[in-house]
Design a protein around this nucleic acid. Sequence first.
DNA 1: AATGAGCGA
Length: 295
Amino acid sequence: MAVEAANQPKIRWGELEDDAEDLDFLLPPKQIFGPDSNGVKKIVEYKFNEEGNKVKITTTTRIRKLANARLSKRAVERRSWPKFGDAVHEEVGARLTMVSTEEIILERPRAPGSNKDEAKASGDSLAQIGKAGAVLMVCRTCGKKGDHWTSKCPFKDLAQPSETFMDKPPSTEAPAAGGAGSQKNAYVPPSMRGGAAERASGGGTEMRRRNEENSVRVTNLSEDTREADLLELFRPFGHVSRVYVAIDQKTAMSRGFGFVNFVNREDAERAINKLNGYGYDNLILRVEWAAPRAT
DNA sequence: AATGAGCGA
């Protein structure tokens, strides 16, 4: 096999391409007609097709004509306005586009830990991140601004406590990572938050491994309901920690049910009460507490 | 009618 290959002259596709181009001079030149009064433009050109035959290609296009009839009266009127503003000094045709020189400062969220110096400097890196990127970060999962941004975010489980938790600042100072986290909204582990004492007496078994709690099952979803739709539907009730739509691996289509997890149980309960029996996409939703996932 | 991924150290 190697011998056979060696006997063949080497052919590179790049050269083939060149050959094809070389023959183009044999073809009649491209002709362009119009555009005529109707804005119709015609291009006639010749090419070699894959079999090497000469083919004629005629392309007819109509230049988009802005019919005045389709413009609002105001728009038509604006066309007769004299130039004003910066355009006064422009020697350009009747219609022109100005380039804005206005400076727009964009705040860009930085990946946590990507700049150690800045994060360290303030002591509490999480709080700092929250400040720096708060404007633009919107979490895909919960839709809230500021504390995390995707379901894969390593900080997603450190989400800022929701309003109900915020009402009761912790009595115990949280041992913040930086050591100096004495701000009001410094991160407080769930076990230390308001009401922790009662729960802790039970042995602190409330440890949540994941945001598996307050899971709501939604069935009778239409086939094209996606997670984003579910989120939109449930978000008004409170902080949603996860949405999931079951997908059939074979068909890649929705299995018609999904789950929504809430940070706060009361929010989940309200969602169930409001949304169970709710008409959505021609179907009646069933919304109820989900059984714990099978192991 | 119906109860969910991935997961590597």
